[in-house]
Write a protein that binds this DNA or RNA. Structure first.
Lengths: 212, 212
DNA sequence: CCTTCCCTAACGATCGATCGATCGTGTCAT
DNA sequence: ATGACACGATCGATCGATCGTTAGGGAAGG
């Protein structure tokens, strides 16, 4: 009954989370196992009994740590978006070329280093109630704006050359998001290698002069 | 209780399927409504009673047309993959440059014209039993190989210049897949415009000489 | 004593699926 | 033309299983 790798939503099988975000004890273990199960089967495809069994506890015990199943998902999505957005804000750069490179690097790194987290944050948001999803949506809008602004500034300075800014933004953003789906232990690249390569490809998309 | 557009898995709200694939009568209506519900909420997030209600029938009637809920999903995924793969095979081109342009065009067109179908085919495959998913997996492998072969041939002929063929393939494939998530009625582009623009971007990624 | 953590047991609701009955319709032989 | 019959579509009712969640208690450490 083993699901072949090709059929899974994600190729990665190592459950990783950003350091420092995991609570100690059972509460953290619930978050870890929920990340794995929600990434593999989706929020509605994993029951709280599946989650409890993976944690070595009974389903009722979950409610001593989280008020509802939805809150576990909300916490994972919050962690994923905060890590991703924090990386974007931390990405430096003095000119549009180096800023685009840095931002795409961090964007891809987030998806390659934490593929399960990115998958849950990106694909399970719809399972959240609108109230719990609201703070995440504003973070998302900020990330899009950040990328658009870099592209527009590069255009204004004559450093970039693209037929359409919006479509370049969706392409750069989209190819990076998709990394979470195929990056895994069997891939012969480090996350940094993928991030650097994708940053070069993003500069090509932007039509940057002297991309290297 | 309306879910804001930003939170949904897909921006599109028009339920479209390739012409000629929809059975007549109730059987086709079930397929249409299942496409909408599975795309919005995921396979496990939509119950057969939700589906029946959307069709204006009782849940028991569903089983007069499909032997199980899973078969409805399998049919949608099959349709999606056959449409997508058929497009790739139909994409012509005499040289690697024109072939890459044609293949990316069709790849993007499939995701922009049928966003719900692409979303279900790409993101709900894991909900299928391995036996029902098997035929789809071979189709997928064929599509990847087709793109890789074009890139390699372009490299061999000195027409392309990329740092890494595999990463270029994942980038081109990924940015196209992601179109299904954001393309919708509010977007001021036709599917053809998006497909043409993305084909240009793919040629930039491939490092094609004289991309325009 | 209180607090923390986890348990057993069970709640009502909903899940996917099955049952037999009914209805309309088309196909026969008479 | 007419009655007998078969058939696909749909129904109400219901199955056992599982869902998310709650109530209440036991055990360990301060």
């Amino acid at each position: 009954m083993t699901i072949p790798t090709e059929q899974r939503r994600i190729a990665a099988d190592e459950v990783r989370l950003p350091p420092g975000v995991l609570p100690e004890g059972t509460k953290g273990r619930i978050l870890r196992e929920a990340l794995r199960l929600f990434a593999e089967r989706g929020f509605h495809g994993a029951s709280i009994r599946d989650l409890a069994e993976a944690c070595g506890i009974r389903s009722a015990t979950l409610y001593a740590h989280y008020p509802a199943k939805e809150h576990v998902l909300a916490e994972l999505i919050r962690i994923g978006h905060e890590d991703h957005h924090g990386r974007l804000l931390r990405a430096g750069g003095t000119d549009p070329v180096s800023r685009l490179r840095a931002v795409v690097r961090e964007h891809v790194l987030a998806h390659a280093e934490y593929p399960l987290l990115a998958t849950v944050a990106n694909n399970e948001l719809h399972a959240l109630s609108p109230e719990m999803a609201a703070p995440v949506l504003s973070i998302r809008a900020g990330g899009r704006r950040l990328l658009i602004d870099i592209l527009n500034e590069g255009l204004a300075q004559g450093l970039f050359d693209m037929p359409d800014t919006f479509l370049a933004m969706t392409a750069i953003s989209g190819m990076g998001m998709r990394v979470a789906g195929w990056y895994g232990t069997g891939v012969p690249y480090t996350p940094e290698e993928v991030a650097d390569a994708y940053a070069d490809l993003a500069l090509r998309i932007a039509g940057a002069t002297i991309p290297r």
